[in-house]
């Protein structure tokens, strides 16, 4: 896949969407180990229930990592300058997440070209889980 360049990218362009498999307990266990976030609320249903939750739920940072994949599928990671996420909803077991992005601004600063990308992740019901933004430098 050829990487996008500033000249040909237009405001409104959509990044190729990223579709995830339904969230399951194995994914959460692996992410707990790999990320270093061992909070039992994500991996131990007994703990989650005592905390008043119906079940374990996904780490916010797992959702952000998926949105990161959307961005680095589109441009090499070295072009990423800034990456922000607001966690707007809990991602539950069985949720099927879709990450999307759209170019919302083209900017030039100090002789370098950038685009600002609006990022979203949502489940199969369209409920927003992450609203975010990235700034990437483009050749």
């Amino acid at each position: 896949m050829t990487s996008p360049c500033f000249e040909t990218v237009a405001v409104g362009d959509e990044l190729p969407a990223l579709h995830l498999q339904a969230v399951n307990r194995t994914t959460l266990a692996l992410f707990a180990g790999a990320s270093g976030d061992h909070n039992p609320i994500h991996i131990d249903i007994d703990f989650a229930r005592k905390a008043g939750m119906v079940d374990v739920f996904a780490h916010g940072m797992l959702g952000m990592a998926w949105v990161g994949r959307l961005v680095t599928n589109w441009v090499p990671q070295g072009r990423l300058r800034r990456f922000d996420a607001r966690f707007q909803g809990i991602t539950h077991i069985g949720n099927t997440i879709r990450c999307t992005g759209r170019v919302v601004e083209k900017l030039q600063r100090d002789g370098e070209n950038f685009v600002r990308i609006e990022l979203r992740s949502a489940n199969q019901f369209g409920q927003i889980k992450i609203a975010g933004e990235a700034i990437v430098a483009l050749p």
């Binding site: 909070n39 609320i41 005592k50 905390a51 008043g52 996420a85 966690f87």
Partner: peptide, 10 residues
């Protein structure tokens, strides 16, 4: 831990 949520990350 039971009352902790992640609000924003940058």
């Amino acid at each position: 831990l039971a009352n902790l949520l992640h609000g924003e990350q940058s």
